[in-house]
Design a protein around this nucleic acid. Structure first.
Lengths: 333, 333
DNA sequence: TTGTATGCGTTATCAG
DNA sequence: CTGATAACGCATACAA
């Protein structure tokens, strides 16, 4: 592994001092045009590339952010990451990216790594299991601003950028009600995610708006087990007064639910209307597709998340807005 | 932005020397157990985190790799990146990730940024337009090994990890032939990608294997224009002897082709068999789904790519294997 | 207009 | 067992 060219190398070859070369390269005022030209040319020839590690040691800014997400397997995160990286690049920032696979201890370890890397800011979407976010204190204490995206913590107020899930589910349910549904089931999300509660709240709000009765039997909470959705759908469909529509926390649940119905209850699958969060590009091609999907644009969400973090990184005064809500859009298939 | 705790801070507070503290923390031989304990405890209390920028300045290894891909919009890259990050993390490496959006000049700029970041190695999937990869010389010259993945350059031999597309398409076509097809169309990939040629070669090989005649009219090359696939499918179906099966370079082409048939030629859509590269999780739910999809597992491909790069980063002697082919698997829907 | 000295946080070498 | 000291590559205040 050969060494790469340094300022010192250039200086020696030019018979100049290191600082002279440094200044010439950054056209610091007070360097002769001739010298600048000589220096520039040699730098070019020798393929000189400044060492960021050294620069960062001197200066404060690193122009690097960390992004922690649960798992890229969920395409929503892929598209959000796309928005983040795009916006970051436009602002000259690099992104160091990593996945927790929903494991809180991995999450803590990764944050440690991020700190070692001296990122300027952190964008994080916590795991389903994360119940304590005190790592925020440590990060903020050493001057690394933290912005949550997609999933925000329940145990503290935070800077965050999330989908406006409340209005999103309210809209979805309202649509179902207008379509004539009165028995609407809800497959809700994990308890530890505040997001789950917000979407549930939107569901309740829409029922209330239209003075529909709430029935606890229609609300189920799937677990990660493979057959969880199957079992819950069976329970729902065995009710005396089964639902005519199903509203889900996430598109994967929708697909599982539809799949269950096709396999075990195919006579009743087509009258059943499905709406869920999560609108993926491929969804429109799907067989027995859901009636509609609702969600925020993941790219926008990522872009906005970077922007909020960026504000916090550049200005010492805190931005006024601490929470950004990305509006949801409903796509009817 | 408050400063974070440094070795010097700890040393002062403990009344020790900086180097002593440094050694204690890294249990360097020759430090009293008692001192080690004291140092450790204070470091813990003060939330000491070593500054990697400084460490990297001293040492050679950065434990950081760069990953450059075209666009995360293609889920294949998302899943490959997932494999890369996972494997990298398991080996204590961080990954800096960025997208070219298929723009060669962006690609060059991003590589420059990677060098500044002093990555230890680069994993790159070039753009469709990239015809010169001389950036490899610059990188290798300063000791940064480069491994291509998914897409390898045409203008030079390279270390790369790719899907075994030749065998993949051969297998796919053979399957179609066994199923009775004699007129098999091919929507091929962009000329500049060697991958396109390899898949085309596999197609030709399979025809040859079974002594089927080659018909140039059955091979089309879509352009990025939105209606390109539509037009080509129209041409194909207007032939006197139209194809009974379509083999595509990429699943997006398959979906477009199927979509065209549904919209404009619905009577003939179901007899037509589609097979293409790219096997995405959602594909199995799709209406008028392709007969089958063939591809390498993107996660594995990413993992292998990191492994090859890793070998190159740690050992000064070059690994024997320069090209890794990930076997393709055919999924029949 | 250019050069010198100092420090960023860490590790390594050497001396005590 | 522990402490100075130099060095990594660069930027900057200051001296020339």
């Amino acid at each position: 592994m050969r060494r790469s060219v340094t300022l010192k190398d250039l200086a020696k070859e030019l018979g100049l001092s290191v600082s002279g070369v440094s200044k010439a390269l950054r056209n610091d005022p007070g360097i002769g045009d001739a010298t600048v030209a000589r220096v520039r040319q040699l730098a070019e020839e020798r393929n000189y590339v400044p060492n960021l590690a050294a620069i960062h040691l001197k200066q404060k800014r690193n122009f690097k952010i960390g992004v922690i997400i649960p798992d890229l397997f969920d395409q929503f995160y892929g598209l959000a990451l796309r928005g983040i990286e795009d916006t970051a690049a436009r602002n000259q920032y690099s992104v160091v990216f990593t996945q927790t696979h929903e494991q809180p201890d991995r999450e803590r370890a990764l944050i440690e790594t991020m700190i070692r890397n001296r990122i300027d800011g952190l964008l994080i979407s916590i795991t389903t299991q994360t119940d304590q976010t005190d790592f925020v204190d440590q990060l903020e204490a050493i001057g690394i601003p933290v912005v949550f995206f997609v999933r925000a913590p329940r145990d503290r107020p935070s800077y965050n950028v999330t989908a406006d899930s409340f209005e999103g589910s309210r809209e979805a349910i309202t649509y179902l009600i207008r379509k004539g549904h009165r028995r609407i089931a809800h497959l809700r999300g994990p308890t530890l995610l505040s997001l789950s509660q917000v979407r549930y709240d939107g569901y309740l709000q829409a029922l209330y708006d239209h003075q529909l009765p709430f029935d606890a039997n229609l609300v189920k909470q799937p677990t990660p087990e493979p057959d969880s959705v199957d079992n819950l759908m069976r329970e729902l469909m065995q009710l005396n007064d089964p639902p005519t529509a199903v509203f889900t926390f996430k598109n994967y649940l929708t697909l599982d639910a539809i799949s269950y119905m096709q396999r075990n209850d195919s006579a009743r699958v087509s009258p059943l209307d499905f709406i869920g969060f999560g609108n993926l590009p491929l969804l429109k091609h799907i067989d027995y597709r859901p009636l509609a999907a609702v969600d925020a644009d993941p790219f926008d969400l990522g872009a906005e998340a970077f922007d909020l973090l960026h504000q916090r990184m550049v200005s010492s005064s805190e931005p006024v807005i601490q929470q950004v809500k990305i509006p949801c859009q409903m796509t009817i298939y």
